[in-house]
Design a protein around this nucleic acid. Structure first.
Length: 423
RNA sequence: GGAGAGGUGGCAGAGUGGAUGAAUGCGACGGAUUGCUAAUCCGUUGUACUGGCGUAAGCCGGUACCGAGGGUUCGAAUCCCUCCCUCUCCGCCA
């Protein structure tokens, strides 16, 4: 949620920043409603003050045994006025909230301008694209031949673009996420969490999936619960409406969950095989930090995610997203893409973002300043560490051999019961 | 699905109409003391909005908040209604 104080203080700067995302944002309207709201609020508070004063008068009379004032009830006429003005304030609050909830986060100063992936800045490239003395196959061919992927059956079960892993495919998937969890808990210091996979509406609002992305979410109508699109939702919302102790920061969590996405409107684009599926496993990193350290933590999380990919022997590159490409809640985002030689594409497997206090404000996560007064909103960060379906496919395509088999990278072998080759 | 109980400050937990932002305990912070990483004693300690002053840390004033919303009343944490949430027991099921 955007900070209304910032909007009041410098509306032009806010407009300009949002403009970088290609969003106008109803800033002038917001300000107008805010001003009117405050005018009504002042009126309301003056009336309430008067009511309280009168009522105290009655109280002291009663105490002195003089009884109620005989002529009417001095406060009763005020009641209607209070009610009327209060209704106005509430209405203005409602309008402001509905506007504010739809305004995206302000991009960080270091985020480049631009509105397409062409404007993203390549930060680094790691590992070499593999070369083959044969024509590398796409993963769906490799997977179907080895009997470890079965898209046809998945479609029979749930419709198109759902994955089904089988045999060593299932084991490889399990090896991948177990390896990542062990890496992040063991070497990078994150606390593992297994959260519920369905989340309340309030959670979805808190992290910013709602209201805008509702049509992309799977929703269980009967209970008004949403299948989590990412573990970021439960992990950040663990602390919703809480006041944390500053000394407890940073909080760092890692979680494996399936991620459910309807991908409404994306049909026909990169939808073969595992490229874009409605359900995929993802190991997610989340951090809640003091504002002054959040950008350091962002760099660390990026490194942690990169390390997970690097050890798998995959070629990957890191880019800094331009203002028009970052997601609703993010102020700054790095993407990690792995090279998939079979399909000949760079595929996004991780997105590491600093949401600053945007989510904390929405989710009412606050922090008590140690040794000081008052509270502040901590910064929230999230990053894939990393997403599985695409990592899985890049792994098959990268480590495929001319004879149709697939090598298992060393980092995964302990998790594969020592299996070195699939096929 | 059936029956019941309950939602109070960072946490635990009192409080059934009048100055209660709310006892008490814990925690946290400040101080005192003890020859020692502890104990004891004293003090302080909610959040948000809003107006004013100050460059500022902050200070002064007001209002709201005891799950949410509505009602009764001069006055509601306290009484009434609706909703939400949590818990317990039974049933069903892994």
């Amino acid at each position: 949620m955007i900070d209304i104080k910032l909007v009041r203080q410098d509306p032009e700067a806010v407009k300009k920043a949002l403009g970088r995302r290609g969003e106008a944002g109803p800033i002038d309207d917001l300000l107008a409603v805010d001003a009117e709201r405050r005018r009504c609020l002042a009126e309301l508070q003056a009336l309430q003050e008067e009511r309280n004063r009168l009522s105290r008068e009655v109280a002291s009379r009663m105490k002195e045994g003089r009884g109620k004032p005989s002529h009417g009830t001095p406060g009763s006429e005020i009641k209607d006025r209070i009610k009327a003005v209060e209704a106005k304030v509430v209405e203005h609050d409602r309008i402001m909230a509905s506007m504010a909830l739809n305004i995206p986060n302000i991009p960080h100063i270091s985020v480049p301008d631009g509105d397409s992936h062409n404007n993203n800045i390549l930060v680094s490239e790691c590992g070499k694209k593999p070369e083959y003395d044969f024509n590398p196959l796409p993963h769906w061919e490799i997977g179907e031949c080895l009997g470890i992927l079965d898209f046809e059956t998945a479609t029979k079960l749930s419709g198109s673009n759902f994955p089904l892993f089988k045999g060593l495919g299932a084991k490889l998937e399990r090896a991948l996420y177990t390896y990542m969890l062990d890496l992040h808990t063991g070497e990078h210091g994150y606390t593992e969490v297994i959260p519920p996979y369905l989340a309340r509406r309030a959670c979805m609002l808190g992290t910013g999936q709602l209201p805008r992305m509702e049509t992309d979410m799977y929703r269980v109508e009967q209970d008004d619960l949403f299948l989590v699109p990412t573990a970021e939702v439960p992990l950040v919302n663990m602390h919703r409406e809480q006041i944390l102790e500053e000394a407890s920061l940073p909080l760092r969590y890692v979680s494996l969950t399936p991620c459910f996405r309807r991908e409404a409107g994306s049909y026909g684009r990169d939808t073969r095989g595992l490229l874009r599926v409605h359900q995929f496993d993802k190991v997610e990193l989340v951090a809640i930090t003091r504002p002054e350290e959040s950008y350091d933590v962002l760099e660390k999380m990026l490194a942690h995610a990169g390390e997970a990919v690097r050890r798998l022997g995959l070629a990957y590159r890191v880019s800094l997203l331009c203002a028009g490409e970052i997601s609703f809640a993010s102020a700054k985002t790095y993407d990690i893409e792995v090279w998939a030689p079979g399909v000949g594409q760079w595929l996004e497997v991780a997105s590491v973002s600093n949401c600053e206090d945007f989510q904390a404000r929405r989710a009412e996560i606050r922090c008590r300043r140690s040794g000081g007064k008052g509270t502040f909103h901590p910064h929230t960060l999230n990053g894939s560490g990393v997403a599985l379906a695409r990592t899985f496919l890049a792994l098959l395509e990268t480590h495929q051999r001319g004879n149709g088999t697939v090598g298992v990278p060393e980092a995964l072998r302990p998790y594969m019961g020592g299996v070195e080759v699939i096929g």
